[in-house]
Amino acid sequence: MHVTGDRRVCVGAGQCVLAAPDVFDQDEDHGLVLVLQEEPGDDQREAVDHAEAACPSGAVHVD
């Protein structure tokens, strides 16, 4: 799986970090999404899928 976070549409809600803290973080300046692992393991699948679904701006994408 490949994970991306679109900082242009991110609103800094932090739902991705709550759902998958090993995969996502937020920058200190604006609270925008940072992807820590672009290719997380299958053990992170459920958390990453939840992060994508919970993102209110649609900034998190999983392929």
Rank of each mutant, 00 (worst) to 15 (best):
G31N: 01
A20I: 08
E46F: 03
A47C: 09
L18S: 02
C16D: 01
L32A: 01
H50N: 07
Q26R: 12
V11F: 00
L36P: 06
V33G: 08
R7C: 00
D49L: 13
A59T: 05
E28T: 09
E28H: 08
V60S: 03
R7I: 06
P21R: 15
A20L: 07
D63F: 03
D63T: 03
M1K: 06
E52L: 02
P56I: 07
A53Q: 14
G14E: 07
G12A: 10
G5T: 00
P21M: 03
C10N: 06
F24E: 05
A53H: 10
D27F: 13
V9F: 04
D27S: 11
A13D: 12
D29Q: 13
A54S: 05
E39G: 00
L36W: 08
D42W: 02
T4V: 14
L18K: 04
V11M: 13
H30V: 04
A54V: 02
L36K: 15
V23C: 08
G58K: 09
V17Y: 12
G58P: 04
V48Y: 09
Q15E: 11
Q15R: 15
R7S: 12
P56Q: 15
V23R: 01
L36I: 10
Q44M: 00
P21T: 05
A59Y: 06
V62F: 12
Q44H: 14
E46W: 02
G5S: 03
A19M: 04
V17H: 01
A54E: 13
D22R: 11
V48Q: 11
E39A: 10
P40F: 09
P21L: 05
P21E: 12
R45T: 06
L36Q: 13
V60G: 02
L34H: 09
T4N: 13
D6N: 15
H2L: 14
V60P: 01
D6R: 15
H61P: 02
L18R: 08
D29P: 01
D6K: 10
C16H: 01
Q26T: 01
L32F: 14
G5R: 06
L32K: 08
F24V: 08
G41N: 12
E52D: 00
H2E: 12
P40D: 09
D27I: 10
C55F: 03
D63V: 06
V17N: 08
A51E: 00
H50I: 10
D22W: 03
Q37G: 05
C10R: 09
G12H: 09
A19H: 06
T4Q: 15
R45K: 04
V17I: 05
L32D: 01
D42N: 02
P56V: 15
